[in-house]
């Protein structure tokens, strides 16, 4: 069986829709992982022991196990406790939480690296402890780790292919549907690889732009 790429264009619409969903998942999960990372980091450093310990266990578990396994846990686990979420939402939560844990590690290190004088200065000026963390420490800490968090975003984009396994109709699953009708896996997966590569390039260019702006505003 030779290769025949002429079948790919007739599924252009399907693939384009899948691509849209891949981008939507990446953006939603990216936002969740960004703010989740900040919340986890603050909780890990400032929350009372009773919150801190379970958080540590959660981070430990999520950093030591494969994302695919976590997606199965979230998708099927929520069904077990009676919450039947759409696959898309389960996928966003799974990807978002997974990368929130990684972002949190970056932000924690960054918070600890913020000059102590910043904290003392803010407190001296009359800001409360919470205000100081929220308005003075976090903005500086997060800004410093935008580049490595950008790398996590790129990893997130590629790992979004995994949510096809729990039935989200993104790019990978869209291709699988086309393949089940045409029996042309090589052609479609290659086309899909091109799509991912393209989104990846765009994302990288966007992140470089953000990094330059941050560097300029310093």
């Amino acid at each position: 069986m030779g290769l025949d790429f002429s079948v790919v264009p007739s599924y252009f619409g399907v693939l384009l829709q899948g691509m849209g969903l891949t981008i939507a998942i990446t953006i939603c999960a990216g936002i969740l992982s960004f703010f989740g990372g900040i919340v986890f980091a603050v909780a890990a450093l400032y929350a009372p022991m009773i919150i801190r310990l379970p958080m540590r266990a959660f981070a430990f578990l999520f950093m030591g196990t494969p994302l695919l396994l976590q997606l199965f846990l979230i998708y099927f686990g929520l069904i077990q406790v009676g919450i039947d979420l759409p696959a898309f939402v389960a996928g966003v939560i799974g990807l978002g939480l997974h990368f929130a844990v990684y972002n949190s590690e970056l932000i924690q290190a960054s918070i600890l690296a913020v000059d102590k004088g910043q904290y003392e200065g803010a407190r001296t000026l009359g800001l409360s402890r919470g205000q100081t963390v929220r308005r003075i420490i976090i903005p500086q800490a997060v800004r410093a780790v935008i580049p490595p968090m950008g790398n996590n975003m790129i990893a997130l984009l590629k790992d979004s292919a995994l949510v096809s396994v729990i039935g989200v109709m993104e790019l990978t699953l869209a291709a699988q549907q086309a393949i089940s009708r045409t029996y042309r896996p090589f052609e479609f997966y290659l086309a899909v690889a091109f799509c991912y590569y393209f989104i990846n390039l765009a994302l990288e260019a966007g992140l470089r732009h953000v990094e330059r702006r941050i560097a300029a505003s310093r």
């Binding site: 069986m1 030779g2 290769l3 590629k158 790992d159 979004s160 292919a161 995994l162 096809s164 990978t172 393949i179 042309r184 896996p185 090589f186 052609e187 997966y189 290659l190 899909v192 690889a193 991912y196 590569y197 990846n200 390039l201």
Partner: peptide, 22 residues
């Protein structure tokens, strides 16, 4: 660039499902 720029899952699928075609 190619292998870091595309999902590992897709690379696996191309090799396993697409491989027989070539």
């Amino acid at each position: 660039s190619i292998f870091r720029g595309t999902p590992a899952l897709i690379q696996l699928f191309i090799l396993y499902f697409g491989g027989p075609q070539i």
